[in-house]
Simulated assay, not measured.
Amino acid sequence: MKTKKQSEATNILGLPVKEAGVIAAELNILLSNFQVYYQNLRGIHWNIRGKRFFDLHIKFEELYNDAQLKIDMVAERVLTLGGTPLHTFEDYIANNRLEVGKDISKDVDAVQLVIASLSDLLKIERVILEESDKINDEGTNSMMSDFIKEQEKTMWMMKAWCEEEI
Rank of each mutant, 00 (worst) to 15 (best):
E61I: 03
F60M: 08
L15F: 09
M144E: 11
K123D: 13
N11V: 11
L41P: 04
D91S: 08
I93N: 01
R49P: 02
P16N: 13
I135Y: 10
Q68V: 04
E165L: 14
E163P: 00
S7V: 13
T80I: 01
Q68S: 13
I104F: 05
L118H: 09
K5I: 15
S145C: 15
K153C: 02
I148D: 11
L63G: 00
E125S: 12
K106N: 09
T80H: 05
L30F: 09
K59M: 06
L27G: 15
P16W: 08
R126T: 13
R42E: 13
S132M: 15
E19K: 15
R77E: 08
I124K: 08
L98W: 03
L118W: 02
T140K: 13
G14H: 07
S117E: 06
Y37G: 02
I124G: 04
K59H: 08
D91K: 01
E8G: 08
L30Q: 11
E125K: 07
I104S: 06
K51I: 07
L129A: 11
A20I: 12
A67M: 06
K18E: 13
D133C: 13
A116Y: 00
K102G: 01
K51G: 09
T88N: 00
T140A: 15
L121C: 03
R97N: 06
L122R: 06
T88E: 01
G83S: 02
C162F: 04
L41T: 02
G14N: 09
K159S: 10
N136Q: 15
K106H: 06
S32M: 05
N141M: 15
A94H: 06
V114L: 07
A24S: 14
A24Q: 07
R42A: 11
E150V: 14
S32P: 01
K2Q: 14
L15P: 01
G82Y: 12
L98V: 03
E164W: 10
A25Y: 04
R42L: 14
S105T: 07
T10L: 10
I135H: 07
I48C: 05
D55L: 10
D55G: 15
A67G: 01
D146M: 13
A94S: 06
E131H: 15
D107T: 02
M73A: 12
Y37S: 00
L129T: 06
T140H: 10
W156C: 11
D137N: 11
W161N: 00
A67K: 02
N28V: 04
V111M: 12
L63M: 10
Q35W: 11
D120V: 01
W156T: 14
Q112H: 04
E62G: 00
A75N: 02
G43Y: 02
Q68C: 00
H87A: 09
Q39T: 08
I104N: 06
F54C: 06
E130F: 15
K51E: 15
M143I: 12
I135E: 04
D109H: 00
K5R: 13
D103L: 01
T10H: 10
N11I: 14
E165S: 12
E8F: 12
A110M: 01
N136T: 15
F60E: 09
Q112P: 03
Q68L: 10
